[in-house]
């Protein structure tokens, strides 16, 4: 049984069908890069997996549990799957430490000392233990994104969804975030990431998914997908002829 099973998933916004039957199984420890043109439905797919959008048809299951649209099931799902956003979405009224502690205490009812200990550990893991008391607006974009990663990790998810997590960063800050992700991958975390960092995808990912117009257009190990694209759309996307 796969860790994440996505079967015939369809999603429409009004008359606009954005996902047109997605099938994808993700094994534990896999790192999957999702690439494709803007508007091809990459974000929507990740958001469906996290229950931020309700799917119109098909099914998604994570670790054997079906994704259903009620608060109890959603909560159970979100405890298993964390999400990192392009815009960081840190809570501006809380410190870095507070950001990492909040959901542990509120959702998991972890006592404060343990939540704090976990927060320090997670911030250390992303290289920011010294920024425990800093507010988000005192941190650089790269640091904010690393806090967001620590915040998701503190919930001890079995998989992480990353939606263009370096796209809002200045070029010189991209590397520090990717280094953290690379480490997570090496430790065996299951990752689904939408990314434009092709080199990173080639080096780190086990499989690459090319999405086009709401469908999985090509899928395979990076060496195949990048070196030997089959469809004209992927060739055009990669700029090879």
């Amino acid at each position: 049984m796969s860790l994440i099973e996505i079967t015939d998933v369809r999603k429409s916004f009004g008359p606009n069908e954005v996902l047109k039957g997605i099938n994808l199984d993700v094994e534990p420890g896999e790192v999957i890069a999702i690439i494709g043109k803007s508007g091809s439905g990459k974000s929507t797919l990740l958001r469906c997996i996290n229950g931020l959008e309700t799917i119109s048809d098909g099914s998604i299951s994570v670790a054997g549990a079906q994704l259903l649209d009620d608060e109890a099931h959603l909560k159970a799902l979100r405890l298993k799957v964390g999400m990192i956003f392009q815009q960081f979405n840190l809570f501006p009224h809380l410190t870095a430490g507070g950001n990492v502690m909040l959901s542990q205490m509120v959702v998991k009812k972890t006592p404060k000392p343990e939540a704090e200990e976990m927060a320090r550990k997670m911030l250390e893991r992303v290289g920011l233990d010294h920024k425990f008391d800093a507010y988000p607006d005192e941190l650089s974009g790269g640091q904010q994104q690393r806090v967001a990663i620590a915040r998701a990790l503190a919930m001890q998810p079995i998989a992480l969804l990353c939606d263009e997590i370096t796209s809002a960063l200045d070029p010189e800050l991209v590397a520090e975030v990717l280094a953290v992700v690379r480490e997570l991958a090496a430790e065996g975390m299951t990752l689904l990431m939408v990314t434009h960092e092709m080199r990173f995808a080639r080096d780190v990912c086990s499989r690459v998914v090319f999405m086009h117009q709401g469908r999985v257009h090509e899928i395979g190990p990076p060496e195949e997908v990048f070196a030997n694209p089959q469809t004209p759309e992927l060739k055009q996307f990669l700029g090879v002829h």
């Binding site: 979100r78 956003f85 998701a152």
Partner: peptide, 9 residues
């Protein structure tokens, strides 16, 4: 969205 993705009701 961020708070939802962390499992908050």
């Amino acid at each position: 969205e961020a708070s939802a993705s962390l499992g908050m009701g």
